[in-house]
Amino acid sequence: MSDREQILGRIREALTVTAPKPGAHGTGAGHHGPAVSPGPSSTRQWLPLVGDSFEERVALFRTNSAELKTDFQLLNSREELTAALIKLRDADGWKRIGSHQGELTQVACDALGLPVCRTDATYDVRELEQCDAGVTECDALIAQTGSVLVTSRSAGGRALSVLPPHHVVVVRREKLLPDLQAGFELLKSKYAANYPSFISLITGPSRTGDIERILVLGAHGPKKLTILCL
């Protein structure tokens, strides 16, 4: 019998007896009765609250970004976007960037006027490793958590948004979603026929607390995350 058959056989046999439902045992219930049972479809109502209007969501995204040490900028025109990019380039002395095909990434590359390592087709990892920033688009921003939702299709593959020391996201404000649930719904409607092989929720620049639980940014991934939202 193959390992596969053995394991599946053992699982089937084990499951002939049903386990008690969670919360069936009395702990902590005291005289106050058992916990209410939600049902999986309604988990949104237990999670951190997100406002209904665009303004509330931007405000939440901004607060989350500040806490995560993400640089979030809400911009009102292409000119402001260009200016913000140039400011970043000059402040850190960028020499080359990595990027991919896209409406806003094209605007960014044009504005920056630097050599670009493109990750749309096979590329040289060593070359990408030498880049000062990775400029990508994304699928969505998530207000609830301050996250950027990317996929290998929307953000130039797996490495572009993690290998260079600075990740810059250029995104239109229509892409701001309320919460994670909405993010997963979007993925489903957009890709269900054929998902990209890589999907990620990026929440702030790379970090570690492995030394005395003290926060350090830029452990392996980018030290900086900038979101330029048009």
């Binding site: 009395g26 702990t27 902590g28 219930a29 005291g30 106050h32």
Partner: peptide
């Protein structure tokens, strides 16, 4: 006391 607190929720 742990039992009073957690088993009895008191």
């Amino acid at each position: 006391g742990c039992h009073g607190l957690r088993e009895l929720g008191n």
